[in-house]
């Protein structure tokens, strides 16, 4: 498929230390949610750093829709339609929701497209439209996260990279955030999701990818991973895969 985003055989690490990712590959097909799960230190966040251009891989290949993006910096990745939503809260707290969202489209020169994207994200995220003129720092954590989602969608990205979107949110806000991930996908944006809350994330995702020690341990349809009892034991908190399972 030409429009997919692909990391192929990536080796990456920090400084002169041993690599964190050792031959990692993942493919994000257009219009799907791919979830990366794995224990602490498996390299989940490093994958997103490589994918967003913040960290240059030592070897391997990054392509989006057939275009080679290996070695591109953050701005180039952004221009190629790879948007990153950082872990924690990264809204501009002192600016209004409107200003935050419009900054997401800062690289768009076309006024008509900018307006169209603005209306699109306002429709997709009712909370964002509702709080349009509010100072972003006054919103709750879940609302701020949605502002960040809206901001990342302004450039009409090919793929949105989400780093721990549910971090620090209460269960209800987490629910809303995952619902929004689904809505983003349904609106045509592919999502590469990194989550601590592995079970919840896999329930949302189409495809799953279990990462351990910098390599893909197992990957496949998210439902299959959820149903795998051994996987549940190892990575999903040791509970049985289904509440109803014996």
């Amino acid at each position: 498929m030409a429009s997919e985003f692909e990391l192929h055989d990536i080796v990456a690490g920090y400084g002169r230390a041993a690599p964190v990712l050792r031959g990692f590959s993942v493919t994000v097909p257009a219009g799907s949610v791919v979830c990366l799960v794995g224990p602490n230190g498996a390299g989940k966040s490093t994958v997103l750093k490589v994918a967003s251009g913040l960290l240059k891989p030592r070897s391997g290949r990054i392509t989006a829709g057939g275009v080679d993006l290996t070695g591109a910096g953050p701005q180039k990745m952004l221009a190629a339609g790879i948007a990153l939503v950082l872990q924690g809260h990264s809204v501009f707290r002192e600016m209004t929701v409107e200003e935050n969202v419009m900054l997401g489209g800062y690289t768009l020169k076309d006024k008509g497209k900018l307006a169209a994207r603005r209306n699109f994200v306002r429709d997709l995220f009712p909370v964002v439209a509702e709080r349009w003129h509010t100072t972003a720092g006054l919103l709750s954590g879940g609302q701020q996260k949605q502002v960040e989602f809206a901001r990342s969608l302004m450039i009409d990205p090919r793929v949105v990279l989400l780093d721990e979107p549910s971090m620090g949110l209460d269960p209800k806000a987490t629910q809303t955030i995952f619902d929004q991930v689904v809505r983003m996908r349904d609106a045509g944006t592919a999502v590469l999701l990194v989550e601590q809350n592995a079970r919840r994330a896999l329930e949302t995702a189409d495809l799953g990818c279990v990462l351990d020690l910098g390599r893909v341990h197992i990957s496949g349809p998210a439902a299959d991973l959820l149903a795998d009892p051994q996987l549940g034991e190892l990575y999903l908190g040791g509970r049985p895969a289904r509440e109803t399972a014996p």
Binding site: P126, V127, E130, S140, G142, Q143, K172, A173, Q175, T176, D179, Q180, R183
Partner: peptide
């Protein structure tokens, strides 16, 4: 998800 919004 809209129940979430209604609260806010």
């Amino acid at each position: 998800d809209s129940a979430g919004f209604a609260g806010s």
